[in-house]
């Protein structure tokens, strides 16, 4: 831990602030957020939005697909949010968030030009490299597509490294389909099989209706060589992991990403414990073989 004495630029320290000479340094203190500027806000769905962020100090935030950051709203609080951008373009940090709590609702009200504090990246990543040479099945439910998007970017950037690539996405209704433009683009590619199903059809929906596990059961992938990446509500992940293994995909080649509340993301606050795992540092990406026994335990 360093105690860099950063001079305050042209401001006298306010009387409420103790120890003005010792400003904490985000580079060495994992508790301290780095200021990022919101350069673009995109309203994705009725309650879901995407921020493009650029570091105020200009240093890009490199990350691996599946990792997350702690996002801080000045004076309000901090929440863990997965990174949704392209790992090959670390200059722009992308976060897609649903407004469900105090902090995320405050974020919903923020506009381009505003500042967000960032700590990270934290946690385990989707092990893309282990999927090389075989088929890849990406299974997403609802906003679970957001943590999978960096993985999909990587798969498409390195498309020749994989055999078949399938993206199976379930949303509640056609209005709840996230990243619609990109989903359309994936569906338009000849080297990707992207399928979308909805729980409830509305408007002119002509696609499949039903849970995403139906798309898994329909097959189209070579199970022994398949690596699967799953993210969505826990009940959906349980069903999807079960369906994948029943199709013959090895448990050790199925990966899922867990969501838990976190206060520190460093393994100190204890909130994100799931069995013996700290989701913040042992996860959020877990191997299904390692967690299959705890995944069905209620209120665990």
């Amino acid at each position: 831990m360093s105690t860099l004495a950063t001079p305050l630029k042209g401001h006298a320290p306010p009387p409420e602030a103790p120890h003005p000479a010792a400003a904490p340094d985000p580079a060495t203190d994992p508790m301290v957020p780095r200021p990022f500027r919101i350069v673009r806000v995109k309203k994705e769905l009725s309650d879901t939005f995407t921020f493009d962020l650029v570091a105020q100090d200009g240093a890009p935030l490199g990350f691996r697909p599946g990792q997350f950051n702690m996002l801080y709203v000045f004076g309000v609080g901090e929440v863990p949010i997965s990174i949704s951008g392209d790992p090959a373009v670390p200059e722009v940090l992308v976060h897609t968030t649903r407004a469900v709590g105090t902090v995320t609702r405050a974020m919903w009200a923020m506009k381009a030009g505003a500042t967000i504090g960032i700590r990270g990246p934290f946690g385990s990543a989707w092990p893309v490299e282990t999927a090389r040479g075989g088929d890849v099945v990406v299974v997403a439910g609802g906003i679970g597509l957001a943590p999978l998007r960096p993985l999909i970017h990587t798969l498409l950037n390195q498309r020749e490294s994989f055999n078949r690539v399938m993206i199976l996405y379930g949303a509640r209704t056609p209005e709840d389909i996230l990243y619609k433009t990109e989903v359309r683009a994936w569906r338009g590619r000849f080297d990707v099989s992207a399928q979308v199903t909805v729980d409830r059809a509305t408007g002119g929906w002509s696609g499949p209706v039903g849970v995403v596990t139906r798309l898994i059961n329909a097959g189209g992938f070579d199970a022994p060589s398949t690596t699967a990446f799953v993210c969505g509500p826990e009940v959906m992940m349980r069903a999807a992991c079960d369906a994948l293994t029943r199709k013959g995909v090895a448990r050790g080649k199925v990966w899922l990403s867990m969501e838990r509340n976190m206060k520190c993301a460093l393994g100190f606050c204890g909130h994100c414990q799931w069995g013996g795992a700290f989701v913040c540092k042992d996860g959020p990406v877990f191997n299904y073989a390692a967690v299959a026994d705890r995944l069905p335990v209620a209120e665990y």
């Binding site: 401001h11 120890h19 400003a23 105020q56």
Partner: peptide
């Protein structure tokens, strides 16, 4: 106490850390 930050009008900056 973990830290204190100040609104600069153009974002925020860290101004203290624990004793």
């Amino acid at each position: 106490h973990l830290w204190t930050a100040r609104d600069t009008g153009n974002g925020f900056e860290m101004i203290s850390k624990p004793e």
